[in-house]
Amino acid sequence: MTDHAFLEVKDLRVEYTSDKQIIHAVNGASFSLEKGETLGLVGETGAGKTTIAKSILRVLPDRAASIRSGKILYNGEDLLSASEERMRSIRGNEIAMIFQDPMTALNPTMTVGYQIFEAIMLHNTCEKAEGKARAEAMLEKVGIPAVRYHDYPHQFSGGMKQRVVIAMALACNPALLLSDEPTTALDVTIQAQVLDMMKDLKTEFQTSMIMITHDLGIVAEVCDKVAVCYAGEIVEYGTMEDIFDNPLHPYTVGLFHSLPDMSGKRNRLTPIKGMMPDPVSLPEGCFFAERCPYATEKCREIHPQLEKADGEHEVRCFGKENGKHG
């Protein structure tokens, strides 16, 4: 065994600049992932989840976004200081990404088959005929008949498009798959189908995965580890059981309370009051203090660090010293 993790994100900071305002999208996010594992990156819209994933592949918009600091170690190699050429050989080949919206993630003027073919030919030295055969095989694998190779994206439904996107991402058998809310844009019935398919393919290809989602149901279904993301930092990290059975951070607890309870004990949902802090001017203390029912003077003044609770379970909260919330 090697002494470094398969993927390790250390103190990642990403900023967007717009109209001379600096938006602090990711503020020192750190987490790690072992080979074969699935990590759920959970959090509400705007928590910086997608930015973290795009930083790993370094496909953030050049002009607007800048990675301020941090390390992204992939098998010990820092991707943030890798050459552009090296990154190109990693993208789509070793690390692939599934984007949130299948409606816009496919090029409307290229056949779906060609878009998979393109990914294959970029990373393999094979004959065109073989590349095409492999692209057709990938289509079949995600449940689309190979005869539809020459169809364009607009001739497919949303769920089918997402299957194409998944086929494209898995075409080169990547070691790590970044799935950015792969089912959010789909109907509920299609969501389950796509999710099942992803689980099967992940097992078949032995892919490690980062599953970005705001849906705790999906986390429960596919993830081994969970990182809860809030205002661009990880507020709680642990195994799926840690997070589901013993949530420590008030935000995580709040997330569970805002889910419908099927046992029927609660009639009303309990939303988390308030809004995430404005990423242009983040508070000095804990980012969650404004919304936290347990916040103290200390929480408003000092920014808490991510600290070990028990085993692999880590939490960014002073409250853990006072015992469990919630």
Binding site: K54, L57, V59, P61, R88, S89, I90, R91, G92, N93, A96, M97, F99, D101, T104, A105, L106, N107, P108, T109, M110, Q115, E118, A119, L122, H123, V165, M168
Partner: peptide, 27 residues
């Protein structure tokens, strides 16, 4: 250039020049 499918092309490992000629120009 700002659209998602161009990011998809980059995420596939496509070269910047080919991304422009193959994905951006025609669209």
């Amino acid at each position: 250039i700002r659209s998602d499918y161009v990011t998809t092309a980059r995420a596939k490992g496509q070269k910047e020049s080919k991304t422009i000629t193959d994905h951006v120009l025609r669209n």
